[in-house]
Design a protein around this nucleic acid. Structure first.
Lengths: 131, 131
DNA sequence: GACCCGTTCAACCATCTGGTTGACAAAGCA
DNA sequence: TGCTTTGTCAACCAGATGGTTGAACGGGTC
């Protein structure tokens, strides 16, 4: 693995329905690998791989307990993605509001200028720059 | 493509940093494919593919405008993922609180009766909390 | 009509991913 | 001391993914 950025790892980890289901079940209680694997029609090894993906993303941790390896959900990491989503959803909504105001303020203008909005054109590539 | 469930598609779409950056920029304003492609060291075709992924996930829409295809962010779809994340984070936090209360209420009890806690989960999947 | 611009389609390639099976390590139980 | 349970590691395979290049299409402009 090429050590992708954390956000990508978390999103990628949650992009698989089996892994999402595992997370959902771990949100209720910790569980061992065999317990987690039981409901799925796949081998235990496959589930172990899924857990490795979740662990690399920081979403779960495993402790040693005799020969069992109980898996524990690290719920705070979910906040990382939530924050990203919220930031951009809010930003988009703010824009809609601004657009509404703009449209309300101008009487009518024939079609030409729609795409070339005032201000910058494709400037900031940085997704992390917060307000 | 095998028509994966919407949630998986959205998460998978956001698992790529380039696509996430595109979403971030579209949250500020609509843009054409070439505008979007400009900052990245990849071909326009590659960006067009990324946009197809985002479109299949319902995250963006394209309208026809002369020979341009301005891309527009559909921000509501982000709520889908936010809701999923919030639900499970809240569930996990509720569990921690419950566990705290449980630990506070019992002095100490070696393994046996742990799984039969009141109300919660009775699944006995949780191997006792042995230090 | 000829031409250019913006965009997509098609074919190809390297790599990643999710799954399999088989072997093996670690810890408890007979 | 074996034997069973639990879990991981390794090798392998089919299919998806992200990238490339080259060709084609749709629509203005000359």
């Amino acid at each position: 693995m090429v050590a992708a950025d954390p956000l990508s790892q978390v999103f990628a980890a949650l992009a698989d329905p089996t892994r999402r289901d595992i997370v959902a079940r771990l949100a209720v209680r910790d569980a061992t690998v065999t317990e987690l694997a039981a409901p799925y029609p796949v081998s235990v090894q496959a589930v172990s791989k899924h857990l490795k993906v979740l662990e690399d993303a920081g979403l779960v941790s495993r402790r040693r307990e005799a020969q069992r390896r109980p898996v524990h959900l690290e719920a705070e990491v979910l906040d990382l993605t939530t924050k990203w989503l919220e930031r951009h959803r809010r930003r988009a909504q703010a824009r809609y509001r601004r657009l509404d105001a703009l449209l309300a303020s101008m009487p009518d203008e024939p079609g030409a200028g729609t795409g070339t909005a005032p201000g910058a054109t494709a400037g900031s590539t940085d997704p992390g720059a917060g307000p």
